[in-house]
Design a protein around this nucleic acid. Structure first.
Lengths: 297, 297
DNA sequence: CAAATTATCTGACTATAGTCAGATAATAAT
DNA sequence: ATTATTATCTGACTATAGTCAGATAATTTG
């Protein structure tokens, strides 16, 4: 890794954690602790289930319970048992709690304004743009890709999104039953594999390999079920998934990767071409395909 | 303040403090606490006086003392009394401490690399550029400008830098004695005023007003001693100083601001022109001046 | 229906990150 | 030579941010 890049990240960290962190504490540090403030914020105007709060803030059950008691004592929160499952408890802000949350919101605004205020209009715009860029790329860098069981909940969710999207985008809709199969067992080792990309435990993309098991002499494999959530598009995730799939294929001894695709999927087609896939004659009878590609690994 | 700008700062804060903060803790927060790690880092390879450490980290004397005892017990630090003042104690890393510090350094590098690693080369470069931009603009926004006594240490330091720079840049050097005066009393209310710009308690620029005290009917004032440290140039600080000086002048009832300048100071001249100053005929006999400017407030 | 699981709570405990009030020793000021 | 100041340390204390081991009640599973 190039030294200058590493240095710029480290320098950024120092500068931002100091400046932003210090000011943040100064503005938000009201009469309640950070834990209480975070909880107050997370409960939100609509209220939330306690287990949901625990999950979102990744806090211990005992700790959340105690924080809620403290907020209750101060009249900011009411906790009541849920109607449909009486084990579950729901936290809800009182009007005092809502006022307190609004105050936190105002302070966060004031904090942001205190950063922008000394700058000229042009500098403010440049700062906002650079911040958005850092945020986007930090998001891209946070995405993790892992081999996943295609019948797991995350994988299934991705596949549902995939089906729905193709159905919307293809001229005549899309019926997986008419298409060449990609059943879970075909995308599970040793028959194939399934990758899920996740952003903070949330699935945001997938891609699969289907090895050609019948004839071991034929070292071609098929690329299937490439999908990237709209939420993270143009972050280079498609490229990363493709690179990962190719790496796994290579490790499995595959020398040729193939795929077919529909003309509606223009970004995908562009990605394949950019990544060295050559358009070839139809090598199967997929009814929804308009283009067939191949790459020698 | 425009809503979208405020939102982008808030969103950036959330994203960066969560991602960077969490990862940072994960990488750096190993067998010693954050306090110990910060102290270990701050002592540095050359060692440092305990009072200096207290100052730099803004920590309580009792707390630093205890942290040092903890580091001593673990064989990472040696504290000994200073030779010239036996009240002062100097902390110095043992070889184990140096190794530990090197390990922290490696971890900080690994952390930076873990952010860069998932990105493509192009994305890495864009991230580094955006981070540098955020850092620069955050630095600009951290600069504070305040009316300061021109005989204070900070003001004197700025004036020394100013003198030195003009002496270097003017063809024939610069001797303040030959030039129109700007004595401390002339830049102190009510005769005038002196602004110092500071970045984290360090002076980084200055500028002064000299009101025309003799005839109250004449509401013209002179702009003097504009200087910006090379360390913070091209951050728009000159413009900010100028704007602040004009604001103070306006509040003092000044309707015309005047200044003279040397042809060597091209950035300053450009700034004056951009800011609405018109070149006028010489209104004094300043021997070092080539241009005279005036602005009606 | 019994057993397992889930959601929450309480009590007991820990580490971190401090603060505050002196005490002590060295040095500076008068 | 006092007196004041400075640099550091120790003891006693606090708040925050938790963790861990059950206990209890409601719900789900076999």
């Amino acid at each position: 890794m190039e030294r200058a890049l590493v240095e710029s990240v480290r320098s950024f960290n120092r500068a931002v954690t100091e400046r932003v962190g210090a000011l943040n504490d100064h503005f938000l540090g009201r009469e309640h602790s950070l834990g209480e403030a975070r909880l107050l914020w997370e409960i939100g105007v609509a209220g939330a289930e306690v287990r949901e709060l625990r999950n979102r803030l990744a806090l211990d059950s005992a700790y959340v319970s105690r924080l809620l008691r403290a907020l209750e004592r101060r009249g900011l929160v009411m906790v009541e048992t849920s109607a449909d499952d009486r084990r579950v408890r729901c936290a809800r802000l009182t009007s005092a709690g809502l006022a307190e949350r609004a105050e936190l919101d105002r302070r966060a605004d004031a904090f942001a304004e205190s950063i922008l205020e000394p700058l000229s209009t042009g500098q403010q715009a440049r700062l906002a743009a650079a911040m958005a860029e850092v945020e986007r790329l930090l998001m891209a860098s946070t995405v993790r890709i892992a081999i996943t069981d295609p019948s797991s909940a995350d994988a299934q969710w991705c596949l549902e999104q995939y089906i729905q999207e193709l159905n919307e985008r293809f001229d005549a809709g899309w019926d997986p039953a008419q298409s060449i199969s990609a059943y879970p067992h075909e995308m599970t080792p040793p028959a194939g594999l399934f990758l899920v990309a996740s952003l903070r435990q949330q699935p945001v993309g997938c891609g699969a390999l289907k090895f050609h098991g019948d004839a071991p002499s034929d070292a071609a494999a098929e690329l299937k079920r490439m999908w990237v959530s709209p939420q993270v598009r143009s972050l280079g995730l498609g490229r990363r998934l493709l690179t990962e799939l190719e790496r796994h294929a290579r490790e499995a001894g595959v020398t040729v990767l193939r795929l077919e695709t529909n003309r509606a999927l223009v970004e995908a087609i562009a990605l394949y071409r950019r990544s060295g896939y050559q358009e070839v004659a139809a090598f199967n009878d997929e009814p929804y395909a308009h283009h067939w590609f191949e790459k020698r690994l």
